Amino acid sequence: MANTEIRVRLTHGASESDVGALKAWLEREQKLEALRNSGRLEIQESAGTEDGAHSPMGTGMDIMLVLIGAGAPKLFDEVFEQVKSGVRAWRENRRSVERGEPPEVDVEPGGDGR
């Protein structure tokens, strides 16, 4: 089955406020917001995987984007690129409004879809 989930993991000193701020940022991305409003995309926080839970000062939380419906696999690549673009924009914005470097963010296919 094709991927229908995207995992966004903040690392290297991310705080809970970083997770919430990035989730809110992604929810406002125009294409992602349109998919959310149509019921084809859910954006949620979930407990991080074991390796995220052991990072020093890490939050142990991921942001999961789940595509819903029969066309979800076809949308995956487009949404994946939009999420990566949104994460880059959020990091640039955070760098300009807060001191210090923003946390690193990994964006990867989620779940066990391949």
Rank of each mutant, 00 (worst) to 15 (best):
F80K: 02
G69A: 12
V8N: 03
G111C: 10
L22K: 05
K74S: 12
S17Q: 15
A14L: 07
K74I: 09
G71F: 05
N93G: 10
R36Q: 12
R28V: 03
S46G: 13
G52R: 01
A89M: 14
V83Q: 04
A47F: 07
E92N: 12
G52C: 08
E27N: 07
L10I: 01
R40S: 14
R91A: 15
R7F: 11
L10Y: 00
S85R: 09
E16D: 14
I43H: 03
A14V: 02
R7S: 14
V87K: 02
R95Q: 15
R36K: 13
R91M: 13
I43W: 00
D106M: 10
P103C: 10
W90G: 03
D51M: 14
G13K: 05
R7Q: 11
V19A: 03
R95M: 11
T49R: 14
V19T: 06
S15Y: 03
S17K: 12
A24Q: 14
R99G: 15
S15P: 08
N37P: 00
L67C: 04
E16K: 10
G71I: 04
T11H: 08
M1S: 13
S17F: 07
G69Q: 11
E81L: 11
S55N: 08
E81I: 04
G86K: 03
Q30P: 07
N37E: 15
V79S: 02
E98R: 11
A21M: 07
T59N: 04
V97H: 07
H54P: 00
S55L: 15
G111N: 09
M1V: 10
G113H: 12
E101Q: 14
M64D: 09
D106G: 03
E29F: 04
G13S: 09
R9G: 06
Q30E: 12
G48D: 09
G69D: 13
T11E: 11
G71T: 13
G13W: 03
G69C: 09
E45H: 01
K31G: 09
M61T: 06
L75W: 05
A21W: 02
F80I: 00
A72D: 04
L65W: 02
R95C: 04
P109A: 15
R9Y: 03
L10A: 05
P73R: 06
S46N: 13
H12D: 15
G13E: 07
E108A: 13
D62E: 14
L35Q: 06
F76L: 01
V87G: 07
R95K: 15
S38M: 10
G111H: 08
L75G: 01
V79D: 01
V19Q: 01
D106P: 00
V83R: 01
K74L: 15
L10R: 00
G58T: 04
R99L: 13
S96N: 13
L22T: 02
G20H: 12
Q30Y: 05
I63C: 02
V105F: 03
H54R: 14
E108S: 14
E16F: 09
V83K: 02
R36L: 11
S96K: 14
Q30G: 09
V79G: 02
E101H: 12
L10P: 00
V83M: 02
